[in-house]
Amino acid sequence: MALQAASKVSMLLGQCVPCIKQNASKFKIKRLELDTNLNMFFPKVEYIYAHDPEKQCKTGDVVLIEQLPQKMTRLITHKVKEIIYPFGDITDPLTGKKCVVGKYREDIEKISKIYGELDSRFKYDEAPPRGWQEDKKDFSHVETYMKYHETGEDQPYSY
């Protein structure tokens, strides 16, 4: 049974991937497709561009996107409705507290307080919002490529 093309579905949940387009974000949409011969579901990945003029989606965010009444361009068929899970900033749905892997952030701080916290520790309240290391030390927001030509200039995005 063939799945309906992702660009024709009215609402989708996708993960943001690096994209150079200025007013749009690219989303990776993973759905399960039924193979009728084997009677098994297999993952099928499609990429969709959604209108995002302020570029509020960052790489890795899980975002709800909605179909536009009319195609904006040949590629842009959807628009961003809501960022559901910001990447690397997990909130526990039951208690509404922030957590890291299996522990609440509060608990981590409480533990270090008991042991006697040091100044070298990471402080959540003083931390700037995500993205302050972009283009400096963190290059995960761009598509990297294998370096294929020596221009003599620095190529920050080449691997």
Binding site: G88, D89, V100, F122, P128, R130, K137, D138, T144
Partner: peptide, 24 residues
């Protein structure tokens, strides 16, 4: 990076490291 983005960025800054993912 996946667990705690803010701490990841702070760690890159303090240890003077660079994080560049492989091309697809």
């Amino acid at each position: 990076r996946r667990w705690d983005y803010k701490r990841f960025e702070w760690l890159l800054e303090t240890l003077n490291l660079k994080y560049k993912p492989m091309p697809l």
